[in-house]
Design a protein around this nucleic acid. Structure first.
Lengths: 106, 106
DNA sequence: GTAGAAAATCGACAGTTATCGAATTGTGGT
DNA sequence: ACCACAATTCGATAACTGTCGATTTTCTAC
């Protein structure tokens, strides 16, 4: 394991607003949002009570840590979970988040 | 999952020196240190190149997040991994750290 | 009780971060 | 062309963090 790399992920998620934001994106990733299975900044403003500039900032942080990917589509910024990262380190997050799929040691 | 609680753990481990410190304690927990299977501040000074006060500070942070337990024995402060926490959230850390025992989804 | 080692405490400082309001840019519809 | 909306950028500020050197406490061994 690369310590720097791992610390970077923790750094991206230690802020509870940012963690909540990440989980919200993950949730949309599975259950769908009003926009249809995807998640944009406007969706999040309704859920978390932080300002749009702050959300924009946090999204950039998450993207910078490769935890999510973003894509500009029309007026909206579509955010998606980066599956590769989940596969590599983030499994525990998704697993814990959903409170299902318990972990088993090999 | 409790977001605040999870964020607290990430917060305790996002600093790479602190993560390294945690992993060092985990390592001693298994393979043993010169002191005999345990880990004190003096052991760590030799590994990480940060000062004793800083290490002391980091240890308190880890203990405060319930990731380790500490016990004063004579002149030494013995640090140990909190197994309960590992069991609850930290499995991925230990697993990744050792690069063995791969995770399997249920 | 004195000396020395281990660790903690105490400021202090530099750097980082979260957050906001205001202003700006970009996009789509009318 | 204009308006409304989505998002970003731009300071600014308050709060937090990591780190250190110096000092102090706590313990052991003599």
């Amino acid at each position: 394991m690369d310590i720097k790399k791992t610390a970077k992920i923790f750094k991206a998620l230690f802020n509870s607003n940012r963690l909540e934001l990440y989980l919200k994106i993950a949730e949309a990733h599975e259950t769908g949002f009003e926009t249809g299975g995807e998640c944009c900044v406007a969706d999040i403003i309704g859920c978390l009570n932080i300002s749009a500039p702050t959300i924009s900032h946090h999204i950039k942080e998450l993207a910078n840590a490769d935890l999510i990917t973003t894509e500009k589509r029309g007026k909206f910024l579509i955010c998606r979970i980066n599956e590769e990262m989940v596969a590599e380190v983030g499994k525990i997050l998704v697993l814990n988040r959903l409170d299902k799929n318990p972990i088993h040691l090999a």
